[in-house]
Write a protein that binds this DNA or RNA. Structure first.
Lengths: 204, 204, 204, 204
DNA sequence: GATGAATGAGCCTTCATTCAT
DNA sequence: GATGAATGAAGGCTCATTCAT
């Protein structure tokens, strides 16, 4: 990589990280492009060299951050020594993600405000497309699912139901401690998820 | 009510309804106060007679619309002829609300984008405070809960868990039909909720 | 007229006259809206209360200034004591306009850079429409034409030919003194026009 | 010419032709240097190797295009078999140029928006200076003039008067069809010019 | 209370120009 | 000579807010 090329990446990364910081601190609406470039230490015009507008850089950040989060969780699962069954693996993943998010509230705010099932799928595949080394989330999920001795109907709806429940409740508990803290809520959440799993079990 | 008093209410209501229409049509960020007053047919200064700014009128609208929604559901439940048990009542309420929302997507967008457990509680109590005729949601919920023969732990967490699940999933299914339509998802949702309920049952 | 109404007209006129001054001094391209409002002593937003952009105010100025110029010439003609025939009237009008323009080069630049037969007709009718007291140029021209004992073919093309010739040549002579001064060129121009008139005479 | 030299000329010509295309398509004001270099397929910095700015390349284009137009007309006149008198030659030249321009409206717009007697003389001499092969317009004109049996006063003013009339009227007729099409106007124009010629005839 | 003209801070965006490679 | 990333001044425009009427 030439010197110019390197410098280019540096500026881009500076924009990414300051934009993320500002979005999570002041919020998207109150963050201006002037803010971003000033913090990043580049000229205003430079921003427009790489991004169309504020929303463009936000979308690219969402895709990146979300994929990163899930990949870290799966990698942690795989590096576990002891072998776990399906429900145990699921609990592990959820706890792992909840822990990461509860220690990184800005990330939680940023992701959850902008995440829906649609962009979630889009985000992951987009990033996967760009970065071939990235983990295939779909495959990982199905891999974990097959650990189970039980059969489940509609695996996609099961995933959807769990993800939305986890996303919505943890948002409230972590950020606002409402109605209880995430630590208090965790056991309730796990029990709830097991209840949901049971409702998805198909008669053998 | 004097004529002046009446005129005052008229202007205020015009502002409320046009603001709601514009927020749900163009979005909060792209709606300006100029837009609102122009559509409402009042002068710019008049807006500031009743509201502090754009966010003030939005918050008041959320409170109003949310309370209205739940009250309509409970009233519908009460006007049911046949007597229903707890789980049946819950299913009824959820279906009723989902039906209302799936026929009023703007309302769904508006409410769900701005709703959290915190503002939900706040919203209801605030409106209750202003409008004494409004139904006490907490009481209604506990009333329904007592219909059950079973005992449940942590009734508040149970409500929270169910509300968040319903809110998050219906948002995705109704608005984007992702991953399936709301009609396809409904039975799954009910089964999931029953699974959750089971996980909250306390041994007697 | 209320105080507010009066103030409003004052601001608008300040914008018109400073815009005209700047357009004729620095040129349209190099005049910014900031320049205009600064010179006019009003806030930037005020400009946008009355005009869409730079080109809007320019178009309105052209219409106004052009109509004014022709009306002044015709009024001068009408206030002449001695009765004049057609060719004499035409010479009078042309000399009158040329004199006005040669003493007001900014106006000449402004009008001639932006004038074409199309906008000329449009400009006049537009202004006439707004200001019913304004003189009807078409009628005036035909009135003058009828003074003549001779018959002319295609009166509109005759007018067009003369106007374009006068416009183009006086532009060059007055502004650049090229190839000769307007005073030197005037007799040549009149002779040329009489030559053109002859070419339009219809038999009998 | 060396390979480097050739490459240099290639780039310059690419800049010329894309600039002309863009100026005539989008207009001078809306054409940016970025547009030009992008279409020309050269780097931004390269532009500044050959031209000072946008106006520099425009001026050079005007000179080039105008000289080319007149030279083509005179060459066409010279290659005519039959010998023509002065007025006939003049009619031929005018018709030839009008035909070229009415089939190349972009060129007409470009030239007429930027042409005046001053730059006309300048343009021709400048190009003549650079390109010794170019025809001497002044000589050509006088050559044609001498064909005439009649004597004319002020040959330069005669040329000026005719050129301005033709330029101004054809601009309106060709581009806007106002007040009539160029085909309808042509006979009127020729008659007018003959009228002008008559007014320039000097008593023998 | 109601009005709406006026404000002006501050945003987004463009683009001519430079200069290290 | 050629490049094109980086610059940052400068322009266009919006819009929440005020205040004299």
């Amino acid at each position: 990589m030439g010197k110019a090329e390197e410098n280019k990446k540096t500026k881009q990364n500076a924009l990414y990280s300051t934009a993320f910081h500002l979005f999570t601190t002041k919020g998207l609406a109150k963050t201006t492009i002037s803010d971003i470039v000033e913090s990043a230490g580049v000229a205003k015009g430079t921003f427009y060299l790489y991004f169309k507008d504020k929303y463009d850089i936000r979308n690219k950040l969402i895709a990146h951050k979300t994929a990163e989060l899930f990949n870290r969780a799966f990698q942690a699962l795989q590096s576990q020594k002891k072998s776990m069954g399906f429900e145990e693996s699921l609990d592990f993943l959820i706890d792992y993600i909840l822990d990461l998010l509860s220690h990184d509230k800005p990330l939680l705010i940023f992701i959850s405000k902008n995440l829906s099932w649609g962009v979630f799928r889009g985000a992951l595949s987009e990033v996967t497309g760009e970065d071939t080394a990235s983990l295939d989330f779909e495959q990982s999920y199905l891999g974990v699912l097959m650990l189970s001795e039980k059969q489940y109907r509609d695996p996609e709806l099961l995933l959807f139901t769990i993800l939305e429940l986890v996303g919505a409740t943890c948002h409230s508990c972590i950020l606002y401690g409402q109605p209880v803290s995430i630590e208090e809520y965790k056991p309730v959440l796990h029990r709830s998820i097991h209840g949901i799993l049971k409702s998805f079990e198909s008669a053998e």
